[in-house]
Amino acid sequence: MRQIVLDTETTGLSAENGDRIIEIGCVELVRRKLTGNNKHFYLNPGRNSHEDALKVHGISNEFLKDKPKFSAVVDELLDYLQGAEIIIHNAPFDVSFLNKELEIIGREPLMHCVAKVTDSLMMAKEMFPGKRNSLNALCDRLEVDNSGRTLHGALLDAELLADVYINLTRGQNSLMMDIGSPVQTGESEPLVDLRLFELPVLSASEQEMDAHEKVLLTLDKASRGKTVWRLETREIEKTT
């Protein structure tokens, strides 16, 4: 499945109170690799940004005056997102703004277009409970270079989040082996399915079995015979 890492910048914090999207950045991943097939839009929101929002993204009202309205780019955006998994940091915020923009022009909510929405903030909170899980904090923790991030920008933040997401989910691949062909836009990588091969079963040698038994005896002694595996063995013996 294609994955699209998405971020927005807005005029303020509340879509319901009239704030609008001013920037959308999208980064495509295919089989967890960047393809370079990205999307980036600046949008004329039809209203000024709040002062606090300007301090965050630095996108001036004057700069946005000649940019297209959301309605002018919506078809291109939805075609790009069609059927993909969308990855967003603090997804409820961005999704609420996208849904409001879609509602204003009479379109269906985002979930009618995409396969699913994944909130990377919730993932991070589960992996690092009690720690700061902002994008900057995760970049520092996962050694993702964010030295160029002085202000928030939708495309830059989406690129950083893509690297963060790859690090957060490292090790979650299936039994498929990448044979190293480069990814072309819109193409899947050639893969070898390791499930097609019969893997040999190597039995432990007598020396290895003896060493294993010594470890188990040490555990038995330390736990006074209450190790889980020993208790389960007793239960099995009772029923046979």
Rank of each mutant, 00 (worst) to 15 (best):
F97E: 11
F97K: 00
F97D: 10
F97Q: 04
L98A: 09
L98S: 05
N99D: 15
N99T: 00
K100D: 10
K100A: 14
K100V: 01
E103H: 07
E103G: 10
E103W: 01
I104H: 04
I104P: 00
I105S: 00
I105H: 02
I105L: 07
G106V: 12
R107Q: 08
R107F: 06
R107I: 02
R107D: 00
R107N: 01
E108M: 09
E108Q: 08
P109S: 15
P109A: 14
P109D: 14
L110M: 12
L110T: 03
L110F: 11
H112K: 09
H112E: 15
H112Y: 14
H112M: 12
C113K: 13
V114D: 01
A115L: 07
A115D: 12
K116T: 00
K116Y: 10
V117F: 08
V117K: 03
V117R: 01
T118A: 05
T118R: 13
T118F: 02
D119C: 15
D119N: 13
S120R: 10
S120N: 09
L121G: 11
L121V: 09
M122E: 05
M122L: 06
M122C: 02
M123S: 13
M123C: 12
A124D: 05
K125W: 06
K125D: 08
E126H: 02
E126Y: 06
E126K: 05
E126P: 00
M127K: 15
M127L: 14
M127I: 13
M127N: 12
M127W: 05
F128I: 01
F128D: 01
G130N: 07
G130I: 07
G130S: 11
K131T: 02
K131L: 12
K131G: 01
K131C: 08
R132A: 06
N133H: 06
N133C: 12
S134D: 07
S134A: 05
L135H: 10
A137S: 14
A137R: 10
A137H: 10
